[in-house]
Design a protein around this nucleic acid. Structure first.
Lengths: 156, 156
DNA sequence: AATGAAAACTTATTATT
DNA sequence: AATAATAAGTTTTCATT
């Protein structure tokens, strides 16, 4: 991951459909070079070029963050199980006052409730506590990297 | 937002660089029609085609979710202010036991601490409580929509 | 890893329904 | 809102450094 990789990622974060040729002109390298690096970044799963959307604007009416505390020995296993649900779009293992944090999408509040309070505990009996945070409005969901790569480079 | 829009979004979520021509062939419409709809979806800010990445894999070592409780009259204002920071990549207003939930990226734990415990409270005196959830490992960060559009359509 | 060359393919614009 | 036509631009492949 060198500065050229970072500049390519920044360009594609800005506009995922920008032509490789155009990026190449901008960065003074060949088009094939951009193509080769994007293939590597993509096949190594470092980046993914994709359509992201504002969930609320797209009609996903019930979006929530959910916290689970679970028996310590079950954390990894349960995080994996939670990842299998298509309602769940994001799963992380956390330190602090929650062991697993995930984001879940539903068509109604009762279906969110049923999923978190019935469906998941049925499969995962060692869940100790749950906390639900319904998201009302998303003000920022940012996909640019420049500021971040800059900061990383300053400190290295 | 009709079924054609949903199919286009699904295709671009799968591969944001797939050619409009190829999508058009698949969906039995003209290339210009795909182009026109993608332009609309993009300029209406319903979707964005972008490079997303695994933050930990890209070297963003300290990623945390942060919860704030704030004076009720300040929630919107503070959520806006938090959105202005480039360290902050996601900001939502929440119901339940937190008023504002955001994701923040840092190069070290002390810098996360300084940001959340000093920098933000200095600008936002009506923060009542903070809670930090450092993310250790992200198991899923999914950008596909098929399952979701299917569910929406069943219920409508 | 990076490159240039060139055939095959895609995009973007225009005019039309 | 969708389309066909088409000139301009891009991608992909391959041989070379």
């Amino acid at each position: 991951m060198d500065k050229l990789d970072q500049r390519i990622i920044s360009a594609l974060a800005e506009d995922g459909r920008r032509s490789y040729r155009d990026i190449a002109r901008d960065l003074n390298v060949s088009e094939a070079s951009i193509r080769q690096r994007v293939s590597r970044l993509t096949s190594d799963d470092l980046i993914r070029i994709t359509a992201v959307g504002n969930l609320q604007a797209l009609g996903f009416d019930v979006v929530a963050m959910v916290h689970f505390k679970v028996l310590p020995s079950r954390i990894e296993e349960y995080a994996q199980l939670i990842s299998e649900y298509s309602a769940v779009r994001f799963v992380s293992i956390s330190l602090g006052n929650a062991d697993i944090i995930f984001q879940s999408l539903h068509t109604s509040i009762p279906s969110l409730h049923d999923f978190v309070r019935n469906e998941l505990p049925r499969r995962m009996p060692d869940i100790i506590a749950t906390e639900i945070f319904p998201l009302v409005k998303t003000l920022k969901s940012s996909w640019t990297w420049e500021a971040w790569f800059d900061l990383q480079n300053q400190n290295s």
